[in-house]
Simulated assay, not measured.
Amino acid sequence: MNKTLLGSIYLALASSIWGGMYVVVKIVVSVIPPLELVWMRYLVAMVSLLVVSFITRQKWRIHKRDLLIIIAIGIIGNTISIVAQETGTMLSSAQMGAIITSSTPAFMVIFARLILQERLTLKKGFSICLATIGVLLIVGADQVDLSSKLGGISLLVAALTWALMSVLVKRVPSEYSQIMVTTYSILVALIVLTPFVLPRLQAINISQLSHPAIWGGLLYLGIVSTAGGFLLWNRGLQMLNASSGGLFFFFQPVVGTLLGWLILGENIGLTFWTGSIFILIGVILVIKEKK
């Protein structure tokens, strides 16, 4: 299969998985605070990644010269960005979250230019503009609740740091498997978060964790959203340049809105389908772009 097409599929799947994540986080965070939730989902993800690594017989050796980039990915993307994202989701509306996090691809273009010296073509810029218009049509920019300032700032930090992490992934040598890179970066996040989380765990109501919606949501966040989503995203970014790969992040609000319609019975109108067409055109332009 064409490398660009395969990378596009990986990135689209990752973003689609994360599209359903906001609904789950909104439910689980009512029982488990954001910081503790990130820590718990990483524990679940670590176990699942170690099982996969054992089955596939992964090599774990990493050169000292590459340790710094792995640590940076773990702190910037897996720690700061995810904690900020779940905090922002808790404090703000889903619509505000969709709009602010949709700025991630634009930040990726900037970081890709500064760090990787990737050339910004007219087609890339046009694709991002089309997809941004599509997202604004879907979520309805006029409905944003500006009173949730703290949540908005937190989501902006999440978008900025995730974009930086996604570009840094391109600096990881291709000799390392994505399972190894993802596992090590999650381990870094666990090490950073543990001293802050352990003293706070006793405040969680243990009896509420037995509810199927809570432990089921935690398993989804750990196995599907974290282990599966991160693996797909990192692998896809290795196959496309960073600025083009970021465009697939726009699948997140599309899938989130669709799931809200299918599961929660929320109404979607003509603007959703119009916005989806804009995003689809932008993605097709990237897939067809000659390397």
Rank of each mutant, 00 (worst) to 15 (best):
T87M: 06
Y22V: 15
L190Y: 10
I206A: 11
L221Q: 10
Q58R: 15
F248T: 04
G229A: 01
A84C: 11
I287M: 15
G97V: 00
L168S: 00
G7W: 01
L198P: 01
L221M: 12
Q85G: 07
F278W: 05
R235W: 12
I287Y: 09
L259H: 11
T257P: 03
L37A: 03
L232G: 01
E118I: 08
V169I: 15
S92E: 08
A227E: 08
V51K: 09
I186R: 03
G282S: 01
S15L: 07
L116S: 07
M40T: 13
M108K: 02
W215S: 01
A14H: 04
L262C: 09
L262S: 14
L5C: 02
L150K: 11
R200S: 14
M108C: 07
S15E: 09
A94H: 06
V192F: 13
G246A: 06
Q85N: 15
L168H: 01
L120R: 02
I99Q: 04
A94I: 15
S177Y: 11
G222D: 01
S93H: 07
Y10T: 04
Y22G: 06
V47Q: 13
I9R: 07
V167W: 06
L120Y: 06
N234A: 14
K149S: 14
V157M: 14
I153M: 07
L259C: 10
I263F: 13
V24M: 08
T194D: 04
L120Q: 13
G228A: 05
W215M: 01
M96T: 10
L68M: 14
A45D: 09
G88Y: 02
L116I: 10
R235F: 08
V181W: 03
L264K: 11
I27R: 05
V139R: 05
I62S: 07
V29E: 05
Y176A: 02
I69E: 06
Q208S: 15
I206W: 10
I62C: 12
V286A: 02
Q85I: 08
D145V: 10
V29P: 02
F230V: 14
V83C: 11
L209A: 10
S147A: 13
L160T: 12
T79K: 05
G217C: 01
L35P: 03
L49E: 02
I71P: 09
F54T: 12
G134E: 00
V286S: 05
R65G: 08
G265P: 07
M21E: 09
L247T: 11
V24D: 01
S207R: 13
F250V: 10
L11W: 07
I32Y: 03
I73R: 00
R113F: 15
V144D: 08
M165F: 06
Q238H: 14
Y220G: 02
A242E: 00
I128Y: 00
T89C: 03
M1L: 07
L218C: 12
G152S: 07
V23S: 13
S185R: 04
I69V: 15
A227I: 10
A112E: 00
I71A: 13
Q143N: 15
H211C: 01
G245A: 07
H211S: 10
G152P: 00
Q85M: 14
V157I: 11
D66W: 07
G140S: 08
T271G: 02
S185P: 05
I281H: 03
T161K: 11
I287T: 13
E118H: 05
L164H: 01
A84Q: 03
I75L: 15
